[in-house]
């Protein structure tokens, strides 16, 4: 089992992506508990229709607390799949950013289908394409997701780039890196589109490459320079994404679940209370006159403190 250098780079890129995304996830999930900062409507609250919370009930801690997980999922998926807030509040931009994101989702689905196709070819002996119903299903779905993904993604990416450049409000807030990221993605898309339209309309080469990948075989198809460039840049993109704000698919889980929708009450004897006890033991080093050096949060918040105030802000 000897794999080529190119294959190896694909394994490495994918592995770095996964490890980096997991590390990002870990970084966000290992942060200390913070003060509550929820924002209503919170979709898991049973009274979410009008934005209500358990505070609408007298002595809420005596009542059994219900959570509407179904509604939370609904809210999550409408935001994820349709980018609802941009649709509602920035409709014009939605017509570019939505195809762009949908293109990415389709390409991810395409990858998944190629992967399944690869496993099918390598381990069941069913060829793709072939008359076998399963092969037919995988073949046509791959064709559909791949073509649509490339078209929507490329057009969406051009749209987002032009929008960002042409709308002053967005341009003023964008840094060089924001454009670089979009151009990087666009180059990968364009090379992908050329590869697809000129050399691999049915994704046979892509499927063969994936089959070689999943079977750790060196029988990769011959790739011309354009496809080769596409594959290499795509790998670099996979590696790059988790280290940029394009990893907002990770961040978004935390902004919603750990901040905006996090309304877990600090009941006596609860897990929350335990965590609060821990953070109150942290040492504080703020320098303003109303802080005293060397104290923990709990001490600083309860012991007599200086009440000095500054008379003037000076160098």
């Amino acid at each position: 089992m000897v794999v080529s250098l190119l294959q190896l780079s694909s394994y490495v890129a994918f592995a770095i992506f996964i490890v980096a995304v997991l590390a990002k996830w870990r970084q966000w999930s290992s942060m200390p508990i913070h003060l509550r900062w929820e924002l209503y409507p919170v979709p898991h609250e049973p009274e979410h229709e009008h934005g209500g919370s358990y505070f609408e009930e007298f002595n809420f801690w005596e009542k059994h607390r219900e959570k509407n997980h179904l509604n939370e999922m609904k809210e999550l998926f409408t935001e994820l799949l349709f980018i609802k807030r941009v649709f509602d509040f920035k409709r014009q931009f939605w017509f570019t950013t939505y195809p762009f994101h949908l293109g990415i989702y389709l390409i991810l689905a395409w990858f998944a289908l190629l992967f399944v196709g690869g496993l099918t070819q390598a381990y069941t002996g069913i060829a793709i394409p072939s008359a076998h119903p399963w092969a037919q299903l995988i073949y046509y779905l791959t064709l559909l997701t791949g073509s649509l993904g490339i078209i929507l993604g490329t057009l969406g990416c051009i749209g987002v780039l032009l929008y960002r450049l042409s709308e002053e409000d967005m341009r003023k807030y964008s840094a060089g890196l924001d454009y670089f990221n979009l151009i990087f993605i666009l180059v990968v898309y364009v090379l992908g589109a050329i590869s697809w339209l000129s050399f691999d309309r049915t994704f046979t080469t892509a499927q063969a490459y994936m089959t070689a990948m999943v079977s750790f075989s060196s029988a990769i198809p011959q790739l011309n320079n354009i496809i080769l460039a596409h594959v290499i840049l795509l790998e670099l993109l996979w590696i790059y994404i988790p280290f940029t704000k394009m990893s907002h698919f990770v961040g978004k889980y935390f902004t919603y679940h750990k901040v905006l929708w996090e309304d877990e009450p600090n009941l006596r004897g609860s897990e929350v209370e335990k965590k609060v006890r821990e953070v109150l033991g942290y040492k504080v080093t703020w320098q303003a006159p109303h802080f005293t050096a060397g104290r923990t949060w709990a001490e600083e918040a309860t012991k007599p403190s200086k009440v000095d105030v500054i008379e003037r802000w000076e160098p």
Binding site: W28, M31, P32, H34, L35, W37, R85, V86, F89, K90, F93, T97, R164, E167, D169, M170, Y173, S174, D178, K245, H248, G251, K252, F254, T255, K258, V259
Partner: peptide, 17 residues
């Protein structure tokens, strides 16, 4: 507020919605 602060510093898409 460390977590919400860092999330906010990291992820704005500058979409202005």
């Amino acid at each position: 507020f460390l977590q919400p602060l860092l999330l906010t510093l990291e992820y704005c898409a500058k979409c202005q919605a």
